[in-house]
Every structure is written in structure tokens, then in C-alpha cells.
Simulated assay, not measured.
Amino acid sequence: MKRKKHKISYINRKTPFDYFLILFFVVVIFITLYPFINVLAISFNDATDTLRGSNMLIPRVFTLANYEYLFTEKNLFPPLMMSIARTLVGTISGVICTAMLAYTLSRRDFYFRKIFTAMFVITMYVSGGLVPEYLLITRTLGLRNNFLVYIIPGVIWVYNVILIRSFIDGLPEALQESAKIDGASDFKIWYRIIVPLCKPVLATVALFLAVGQWNGFMDTYLYAPNLKTLQYMMYEIVNKTGIDPGNTHGQNVEVLASSITPQAIRMAITIVATLPIVIVYPFLQKYFVGGMTLGAVKD
């Protein structure tokens, strides 16, 4: 008689070490998320109640006064629109220009590609410095207090060029050769073949550019103080020690000071500044991981 083989399943068996790992990662997740949750709770909590203690996970006295103060007294809407505009325009133009340059440097029939690649890489280690950059942007290009000062200086990042070029080098050359035989131009090959195949790495570069544009404030401080962005306003508010009575627009300063504190304002503007990136990142995460891994592999 044949003996029946009994299959032993280890799927549902958990060892003490497994429970330890689960507990450990739960603690790590809590430690990671607690600062953001705490900032969110304080931003929605009554400012005077926060003075009793700011260690909280949920608002003790829920209020929208902090956000109302930001968008009315601090006139936060124009800087928010400026940040959105520079992020959208800077990201789209940066992705297009970077992808074009990377495709050009990936072409093996481009005779000077090694020379230009070396020149670009050198700029990653050696720069002209802040003073030449300031003189170039303000005097030579005349971009002071011009919206293009947010776009032109950061339209090409060498690291992104190398990332996209490495991804293109991993694509089959037969695709481009067959397109050439069919009479396709270089530009048509780029936007009909290369761009669709490079979606993962392009999404990765777009995320890099969007985060850089959204978080930038030094360029506003140096070149465009009249075109204030949300991050620059956050920088100004965080560096203030108290409420500015000159921005109360005729309201009762004592009432305002009793209901609003600098800590509450800092927390509220921190949430406003970080929320767009927190919302966008999950949708680009899979492309981000794929672009970082596939972009470094060559056939």
C-alpha cells in the first residue's frame, strides 16, 4: 500500500521571533509617523490649549482658527499659487529638457557625447560659487524678480540626465534602428519610442524636480523677493518670534494674540507646505522604485 504523504504547512505558524519583528516594526512606524501626526494635531488644536502641553495625537480642542489666520491675515493664497505654478512649470519643462538631453547623450552616433558627458559630470563636483551665479542670474540674464528665475537655473540636473541616459542605454537598439529604416526622424523616435518606454524613470525625475521646486526658498530670498512662494513665507513666519501687529488689518491685536500663538502658526503652515507632496508621492511611488532600479541596469 502506498503511504499518503502529509503536507506540513508552515504558513500559519509564527515563532516568537516573528511576533518580535511585528512589534518592532509597529514601534518603528509609530516613531516615524508620530512627529507628523503631532504637528497635524497641534495645527487643528486651539492655540491657548496647546500651551498646556503639545504632546498629543488628536486635537483636544478642535479649531480651524490657525488655518483661517494663515489664509486671511498672512495672505497665504498668492504665495501658494506661486509655489504651485513654479512646481508645475518647472517640473514639466525640466522633464522635457532633461529627457531630450539624455537621449542626445545616449546616441552612439553622436561624436562628442563622451566630451559633453564629462563636462556635465564635472559640474557635479565643481561649481562657480554663489557670487558668479548671482551675477549671472541678476545682471547677465536679468532674471531678478522674474518668474523665469524659478525655471531656467534648475531646468537641467546632471544627476537626472545620467539617470535617464542609463535607462535609455538599457533599451534595445533595434527599436531605434527599425524606426530609422521606416523614415522616422530623431525627434519622432524620441517622443514616439523613447518617452513611452521611459515612463518609470521620467516619473522618478518628475518627483525629484517637483520636490525640489516645491521646497525651494533660497532662490526666492536671493533673486525674487517680490515673487514670494509658500516655502519662503513659511521661512519668514517660522523665524518670527511672535505675531506681527502690523498685519492684523484693523483687528483687535489682544484677541488675536490670545487665540493664535507662533507655535500653532508654525504647525499649520508646515502642514500646508508638506501636504501636496504627501498626497502626490503615493501615486508616483511605484514609478520611483522602478526608475531607481531599472535606470541603473544596462544590458
Rank of each mutant, 00 (worst) to 15 (best):
L23R: 01
T50P: 01
P78I: 11
L222T: 09
R192W: 11
F217G: 08
I260R: 07
K240R: 13
L64G: 08
V289T: 09
A174G: 13
S166H: 05
I84M: 14
Y111W: 15
T15G: 07
L136P: 06
I269W: 00
E173G: 14
K298S: 09
L23D: 11
L209C: 07
P59L: 01
G90H: 05
I265V: 15
F187N: 02
A296K: 04
L284G: 01
Y281E: 03
M1F: 11
K298W: 05
P132H: 07
N247T: 11
L21S: 07
I164D: 00
V278A: 10
I260Y: 01
P245N: 04
T72P: 02
V297I: 14
N247M: 10
R192G: 03
T274P: 02
V155T: 14
A99F: 03
Y191I: 06
F77D: 11
A296V: 12
Y235G: 04
G154L: 05
D186M: 10
S258N: 11
K7P: 01
I260E: 00
L21K: 13
M292S: 03
A179V: 02
P262T: 12
A65D: 11
T229G: 04
V27W: 06
T50E: 00
V161Y: 02
F77W: 15
C198H: 10
Q251L: 15
T293V: 06
I11C: 09
L175T: 09
K114C: 02
Y111G: 02
L76G: 05
L51C: 10
Y134C: 03
S83Q: 06
V89K: 01
L136E: 02
G142W: 04
D219Q: 14
L256T: 07
A174H: 11
V95Q: 00
F25H: 03
L51H: 04
M56G: 04
F36V: 15
Y232V: 07
E68R: 13
G250W: 08
L64W: 12
F283L: 02
P200K: 06
T87A: 12
L136H: 06
F288M: 06
K188N: 06
L23M: 13
M292E: 04
T220A: 13
I269V: 14
W157I: 04
L40Y: 13
Y103H: 09
A65N: 11
R52K: 15
N145K: 00
R108Y: 12
V27E: 05
P16D: 13
F30I: 07
M119W: 05
Y191G: 09
K4L: 12
P79E: 01
A85Q: 12
L88F: 14
G53Q: 11
R266H: 13
I181H: 10
M100K: 03
G250H: 09
G142V: 10
F116W: 12
R107H: 05
T241W: 10
I164N: 00
I237Y: 10
N215T: 10
A296H: 04
Y10H: 11
L227Q: 00
I277F: 12
M82C: 07
V89I: 14
L64Q: 04
